[in-house]
Every structure is written in structure tokens, then in C-alpha cells.
């Protein structure tokens, strides 16, 4: 982590290819991002598949974890969308677990945060919005666009309202992806900066600096706790907003 310069807070986001892979002129190299995506996949699968492999009526620890996440996501979804929304359960569950595992694993020292890459969060957001659009139009046809027409609005206001609703709809994937990306990026930079302070102060040799060096360390510890909270919270926010948007596809019209 501290290689090269030691305190470059951006270095942790650097993408390095592990296996070069360039078919048809496309750079599809297996990079450190890819590696951590695979690790995320492995960890989530281990919890959910290995954890549930005992199928015991009285669950062990890992099975409890798997069941808790299952019931948590299921109850969140039914809370937002009702029973009907559970047809999207595997999708929302995969999304939640992927983001949650990425965020949490990214906090391990020396790891790579998959969700700190805007292209990853943007792709997930676009995936969500395309499912909303495709499902909404497939299910409700043109009625789906009733989403943009608020009921009870006077006629002369309608064009403005439609414009505003359309802009708000189009900005959803942007805000959805930027929120997660920004939280992850900023948190990791802040951690790195405070960690860097400690290194700089200890390396300077001045006695006074030795005395104040623990202060940024304490802050870094506090920030780590905050980042754990943010990691879980942002995964939850991503999942619940996905539910809210999917709910629009299920029940268009205000």
C-alpha cells in the first residue's frame, strides 16, 4: 500500500493488470479490480452457498448469517415494493451482497475497493435503470410513461412537470452511482491522508512531531469505524433505492 511515495492517497485506486488479456483490440486484462471482484464473488458465494449447505433446522453461525441477510433483503424489499416485488429478489440480493462485500473487503489493509471505481458503480446503476425501463415497458407498455405525468397537476404546468420528472428519472442512475462511488472514494482518501500524516510526522525526526503523531492515528481509527458504517449503509442505500426504482416499474403512476 505504501509503495512508491508512501503517502500518495490516490495510489490505492491504481489499477494494475495481473494477466494481460487483449482480444480483438479490447483491453480485457485481469487486473487487481478483477481479482477483487472475483474475491467478492467467492466470499459471497462461500457465505450463501457453503453456509446453507448443512440445511440444518437449527442453524450454525454461517447459516445464520446467510439466513439473516436473506431475510433482511427480503423484508426490505417487501417493505418498499410489497410481496409482488419479490420477483426481483435474486437480482436485488446479488446487487446488495456484491456492493456490501466490495465495500467491506475494500476496508481490509492492502485490499482494493471495487466500488471505488466509478465505472463499476455506473455499470450497476445503468443495469438497475435498464431493468426498470425494460420491465416497466414490457409490463405496462406506454402506460409506464405515466410515471412522468403526476396526477392532479393543472394542464399548463404539465409540460414543466413532465420535464422535471424526466430529468429526475434520468438523474437517478447518476446519483445512484456517484453516491456509492463518492462515499467509497472519499472515505478511503481520508483514511489514507490521516494514515499518511502519521508516517510523515514520525519520519520528520522532530521531537514535537512524535508527540502529536498519535492524534491523526486516533482519527484514522475513528474514521475506520465510520467507514465500516458507511460501507454497510451505502450498500443498504444502493439496495433500497434499487427497490424504490423497481417499484416504479411495478407500479407506474403516482
Amino acid at each position: 500500500m505504501a509503495a512508491g511515495g508512501g503517502i500518495d492517497p490516490i495510489h490505492q485506486f491504481h489499477i494494475a493488470p495481473i494477466v494481460e488479456l487483449k482480444p480483438f483490440g479490447l483491453d480485457l486484462s485481469f487486473t487487481n479490480t478483477s481479482l477483487w471482484m472475483v474475491i467478492v464473488l467467492a466470499v459471497v458465494s462461500a457465505i450463501m452457498i457453503y453456509g446453507s449447505s448443512q440445511r440444518s433446522v437449527v442453524p450454525g453461525r454461517l447459516q445464520s448469517l446467510a439466513e439473516m441477510t436473506y431475510e433482511f433483503v427480503a423484508s426490505t424489499m417487501t417493505g418498499v415494493m410489497g410481496k409482488e416485488g419479490l420477483k426481483f429478489f435474486p437480482f436485488v440480493f446479488s446487487l446488495f451482497m456484491f456492493v456490501l462485500a466490495s465495500n467491506l473487503l475494500g476496508l481490509l489493509p492492502g485490499s482494493f475497493t471495487v466500488t471505488s471505481q466509478i465505472i463499476v458503480t455506473a455499470a450497476l446503476a445503468v443495469l438497475v435503470m435498464s431493468i426498470v425501463l425494460i420491465y416497466g415497458i414490457a409490463k405496462h407498455g406506454s402506460h409506464f410513461f405515466g410515471l412522468f405525468v403526476p396526477s392532479g397537476v393543472p394542464g399548463w404546468l404539465l409540460p414543466f412537470m413532465i420535464l422535471i420528472e424526466a430529468v429526475s428519472f434520468l438523474s437517478r442512475p447518476v446519483s445512484l452511482s456517484l453516491r456509492l462511488f463518492g462515499n467509497m472514494l472519499a472515505g478511503h482518501i481520508a483514511l489514507k491522508v490521516f494514515g499518511g500524516f502519521v508516517v510523515v510526522l514520525l519520519g520528520s525526526g522532530a521531537v514535537l512531531n512524535y508527540v502529536i503523531a498519535p492524534l491523526p492515528l486516533l482519527l484514522a481509527v475513528a474514521l475506520t469505524a465510520l467507514e465500516v458504517l458507511v460501507a454497510v449503509l451505502q450498500a443498504y442505500v444502493f439496495a433500497i433505492l434499487t427497490c424504490v426504482y423497481l417499484n416504479d416499474a411495478l407500479h407506474p403512476g403516482h
Binding site: 489499477i15 488479456l21 486484462s29 485481469f30 487486473t31 478483477s34 471482484m37 472475483v38 465505472i119
Partner: peptide, 12 residues
């Protein structure tokens, strides 16, 4: 890195 990230994201 967008292409590689997207590709591996899609796969995983």
C-alpha cells in the same frame, strides 16, 4: 481500464 472493469464486472 473501463473495458476490463466492465467485462469482469459483467462476468462476476
Amino acid at each position: 481500464h473501463f473495458a476490463s472493469n466492465l467485462f469482469w464486472l459483467a462476468v462476476t
